[in-house]
Design a protein around this nucleic acid. Structure first.
Length: 565
RNA sequence: GCCCCGAUAGUUCAGUGGAUAGAACGAGCGCCUCCUAAGCGCUAGACACAGGUUCGAUUCCUGUUCGGGGCACCA
């Protein structure tokens, strides 16, 4: 039950004319003032009385019960104190009963979602900017699954196009191209295409041939793409990011459904052949206002299709898979493009996907640049972070095996990067600083994992059995315990808001706050050495509930919690 | 030039139409015979600027400045 429900009931009992929508709950600045506050400003207008007068009147009529200990008017607010033992026991029991499901509102049960994310061009090992897309997409997937949605994750493989053509040319020259060489090869290829028109033309020729279905060329494109994709997926897998379905761009080249789209666009008068024999969509015919970005080219003069062509069919294909919601995670550089696609899709009777955008990750000295080698590769970060974490764990737990050291180190490294990226709202540029990301101190993923490890340590050492639920002697004797209980119970609401808004940053920040609240409790309230068996019991329950909540929150972020660290 | 995002402490980030704007890093001072010091406590420090809406704006709106992204044959 929500903490606010008994309060609403109590007020409505005395004031039947008050409507639920008049309530805005907030938290008083300090626990001394109360646990929950209701400001009287909205009611003041309705009842034509000063807020502090109403507060005093209403507070006087409220009687304590199981849930409510007291109601006090403080200026224009009514501050409620809750019955700590009763409410606290209810919170603990709800968490332990729900277990791994604790926090879920089950808002997505029975609904299917198709989400596409990451879809990196197969040309290099992914850097942290690309990783932002993967981590956001993966966390939204986890969040929606947690809420009960049936989610299918798709990855669009850009296995053709000019860049792959150039890469194929280079691969032909160098034999046995490896994944590690691909970035260099890609940079070289682009450089040459710029300086050598003949080389560039050969790349375009390859595109025309693959579109004609030349099997030899298809094989070459496939080999280069596959090499690259496998290398990229290995890195993403280290980050706990996974996909269900891989859709190859090349499969959509000569898709008959494109004709349907072109037909629909022609019907609206938007699709025309321009003076250079290109097939162009005039988006202003579809309701697009600005002059910039008004025209969208579907086919080159020679009839070969542009990227957008295949993407239109791909979007149609995704929509036809029967999901009630289709989503994409895109960099903000794709905003205009996605808007253009949406207009063309809708004109063709295909609903546009819902898009989550993310802004770029910057480095301290500016933008990342693949060409200048100014990037932080995910693999490099993970290697360094893992190495650092390993040294620490090996020193602290020499009894554990090498494999265990490695496993913990990797979990810590992944948590460092995932947390650092996910805690920032996705529409903001993030400045990534290698040193602070590697430090594991302060507001970091490892800090939260550390809190979990401390809880596990207590549970391991407990000589009394861990209780499964609260008993009649449950009591909350300190503010530290009570603050922790209040923090725990707010998880459900955090999840609900995050899921409806398709954001994961609030989950990350919640986990951090909860870890801080737990640590205060940890320092103030001895568990095993409390002296009173009832207090120990209660605190053990509190530890279990906190561990469950932190684990659930971290799971949504794709972060695991080691037993020791 | 036009369009879309953003601007909170020295730095990196939270947050809210209402009671004292939170952390962390960095700086200074403390704390391990005590469940893991990847920790804790204390001190110093911020809502870019100007208007407007409102009983009340850091939050909503407009403008300015600064930063990021985009604007037809790349994908």
């Amino acid at each position: 039950m929500k903490l606010s429900t008994p309060i609403i009931e109590a007020i409505c009992n005395s004031y039947p004319e008050v409507d639920v929508s008049d309530f805005i709950f907030s938290t008083p600045p300090t626990l001394e003032l109360g646990d929950m506050a209701v400001p009287m400003f909205p009611l003041a207008k309705k009842m034509r009385k000063a807020p502090h007068v109403i507060a005093r009147e209403i507070a006087a009529t409220i009687e304590g019960n199981d849930h409510i200990a007291s109601a006090t008017a403080t200026g224009p607010y009514i501050n409620f104190k809750l019955n700590r033992a009763h409410v606290g026991a209810g919170i603990i029991d709800a968490i332990l009963k729900a277990g791994k499901q604790w926090g879920s509102n089950a808002s997505g049960v029975g609904q299917k979602v198709l989400i596409e994310h990451t879809s990196i061009n197969p040309n290099a090992s992914p850097h942290v900017g690309r990783g932002r897309c993967a981590m956001i997409g993966d966390s939204i997937t986890r969040l929606l699954r947690f809420e009960g949605y049936d989610v299918e994750v798709h990855y669009y493989v850009n296995d053709m196009g000019r860049q792959i053509g150039l890469l194929v040319l280079i691969a032909d020259e160098l034999e046995n191209l490896t994944f590690d060489q691909i970035l260099d090869a890609y940079v070289t290829a682009n450089q040459r295409a710029k300086e050598d028109p003949e080389f560039a033309q050969r790349g375009y020729d390859l595109l025309a041939r693959i579109e004609d279905g030349d099997p030899e060329i298809q094989r070459k494109f496939h080999d280069v793409t596959d090499l690259c994709l496998r290398g990229q997926l290995a890195v993403l897998e280290r980050l706990n990011v996974s996909y269900d379905v891989f859709d190859k761009e090349s499969l959509y080249i000569n898709d008959p459904r494109l004709k349907l789209i072109e037909h629909a666009l022609t019907e609206t008068g938007a699709l025309f052949t321009d003076e250079k024999e290109r097939r162009v969509v005039d988006l202003s015919k579809l309701g697009y206002q600005p002059e910039e970005g008004r025209y969208f080219v579907l086919r080159r003069a020679n009839g070969s299709s542009m990227y957008g062509c295949r993407d239109l069919v791909y979007s149609m294909d995704k929509q036809e898979k029967g999901a009630s919601l289709t989503m994409m995670v895109l960099g903000e550089d794709h905003k205009l493009y996605a808007q253009q696609m949406a207009l063309m899709l809708e004109a063709s009777g295909v609903p546009a996907p819902e898009v989550v955008y993310y802004a770029y990750i910057l480095l301290k000295d500016g933008k990342m640049s693949t060409r200048q080698g100014k990037v932080v590769l995910l693999a490099d970060f993970l290697d360094q972070a893992s190495e650092r974490a390993r040294e620490r764990v090996a020193e602290q737990f020499p009894d554990l095996s090498n494999e265990e050291h490695d496993a913990i180190a990797e979990q810590v490294a992944v948590s460092a990067i995932r947390f650092a990226v996910l805690r920032v709202k996705s529409n903001k540029n993030v400045t990534f600083d290698m040193e602070s990301a590697l430090s594991f101190q302060g507001d970091t993923g490892p800090y939260i994992q550390y809190s979990c490890a401390r809880i596990r340590s207590i549970l391991r050492k407990s000589e009394v059995p861990i209780p499964e639920k609260s008993d009649s002697l449950f009591c909350v004797s300190t503010d530290a315990e009570w603050s922790l209980l209040l923090k725990l119970t707010s998880f459900t609401e955090v999840v609900a808001d995050a899921a409806t808004q398709r954001v994961c940053a609030p989950i990350a920040n919640y986990a951090l706050e909860l870890a801080h609240t737990f640590t205060s409790f940890y320092h103030d309230c001895p568990v095993l050495t409390a002296g009173d068996p009832n207090v120990t019991n209660m605190r053990l329950l509190l530890c279990c509930a906190t561990l469950q909540t932190l684990s659930n929150a971290l799971h949504l972020l794709g972060i695991e919690t080691p037993e020791r660290m």
